[in-house]
Amino acid sequence: MPSAGDKPVIRLPQTLHSSIESRVAHTEFDSVEEYAVFLLEEVVAELEDHDPDTATTDDIEDRLRALGYVDT
């Protein structure tokens, strides 16, 4: 696979690149690459089944209460 420095290069069809480029123009994404990386990171994370369940601990909440972020 070709690479640019430390990163492998992925080629996109021009029409797809142009579609993304037109979306990027109206957002804070700086480039097609940044947009595509964001999307692919989201997809891969979901596929790798990152645990969406989160748990709070009594220690965390007590510490936040002590800092004044949660009412006693």
């Binding site: 979306r23 109206h26 957002t27 804070e28 994404f29 964001f38 999307l39 989201e42 997809v43 994370a45 979901e46 596929l47 089944d49």
Partner: peptide, 21 residues
């Protein structure tokens, strides 16, 4: 533009979930 970016990110996140599901 900031708010459009947020909505775009939300859509990409939701799409990623659908693809994975």
């Amino acid at each position: 533009t900031r708010r459009r970016t947020e909505r775009e990110q939300e859509q990409l996140t939701a799409m990623a979930k659908r693809v994975a599901n």
